[in-house]
């Protein structure tokens, strides 16, 4: 499994933007020319297919491949918009035990022969699906909202990454951790109503990969089944592209963290 880089997108808490981020970042990496697959680990609650706009093309799924009811090439869905990009949808089975460690490992090993990046879109919670999504990871993107329960759950997930992952169990170099702060609202931060980037950085103490501002473009993109990163006019789309650039080792200053200035008078008085 040494060839492909395995990235888990995780958070603990639900609804913070894991699938949105998986779709955006996976698409962004593929746009850079790397062969990329995004795997939906949310067994029973499949949604990556909807966000990626390929829900009507799902025939076989991740669990079918694990159970050898279908081959990987039968289950993989090639993205229609982005070159180099594939999706492996989750199963809608209610059997929570469907994701076995051996099964997941076998699928990841086969994918690793052919892909440069494997993005594991974790389900919420800390149950089996979430544990399997992070177990084999080399890199973790911890998606966090500037809100108390999300930050606390992110810290809990960091603890699991550091103790229950394969790298931790085998005493290897730890999983590389990155913070992705989503649904950021600069105006509310300025008013003291929302935790700031530096507040969350202080508490979680992991390197910041990016800050995605709260944006209407995200809902619009999911309505249409288009990863928001393809909306290159939107702040959220640009912020995700910046995050992907940073992952690839490029320097990108943080953007969209300031409330837009009103003009000369405001500038004179502060900000």
């Amino acid at each position: 499994m040494a060839l492909a880089k395995i990235i888990v997108v995780t958070s603990g808490k639900g609804g913070v933007g894991k699938t949105t981020s998986s779709a955006a970042i996976g698409t962004g990496i593929a746009l850079k020319g790397h062969k990329t697959v995004i795997i939906d680990f949310d067994v029973g609650l499949r949604n990556l297919d909807l966000i990626m706009g390929c829900e009507r093309r799902v025939v076989y799924d991740f669990v079918n491949v694990i159970n050898k009811e279908a081959s990987l090439s039968q289950a993989l869905i090639k993205d229609k918009r982005t070159k180099n990009l594939f999706i492996l949808p989750a199963s809608q089975t209610r059997d929570k035990e469907a994701l076995t460690e051996e099964g997941v490992q076998a699928v990841l090993e086969e994918l690793a022969k052919d892909f440069d990046y494997i993005i594991c879109d974790s389900p919420a919670g800390i149950e089996r699906g979430a544990q399997m999504a992070l177990y084999f990871a080399d890199v973790a993107i911890v998606v966090t909202n500037p809100e108390v329960s999300s930050v606390r759950d992110s810290d809990r997930i960091l603890g699991i990454l550091q103790s229950k992952s394969k790298r931790a169990e085998q005493g290897k170099e730890p999983i590389e951790e990155h913070l992705l702060l989503t649904r950021y609202h600069p105006k509310r931060v300025e008013l003291g109503e929302m935790l700031s980037v530096s507040d969350v950085e202080d508490i979680l103490a992991i390197p910041l990969l990016g800050v995605i501002p709260e944006s209407e473009a995200v809902l619009k993109a999911s309505n249409q089944g288009t990863p928001v990163i393809l909306d290159t006019e939107s702040e959220a789309g640009m912020a995700y592209m910046d995050a992907v650039d940073r992952m690839m080792g490029e320097e990108r200053p943080l953007r969209f963290l300031e409330v837009e200035q009103k003009g000369f008078f405001k500038r004179l008085l502060g900000g």
Partner: peptide, 24 residues
């Protein structure tokens, strides 16, 4: 700033996170 709800949130988080880390 010290009485804003965001700073209350930060204080509460720092305490609970430190506590949970030590238990972990």
């Amino acid at each position: 700033a010290s009485t804003s709800s965001a700073s209350v949130a930060k204080d509460r988080l720092q305490i609970i996170v430190a506590h949970e880390r030590s238990k972990r």
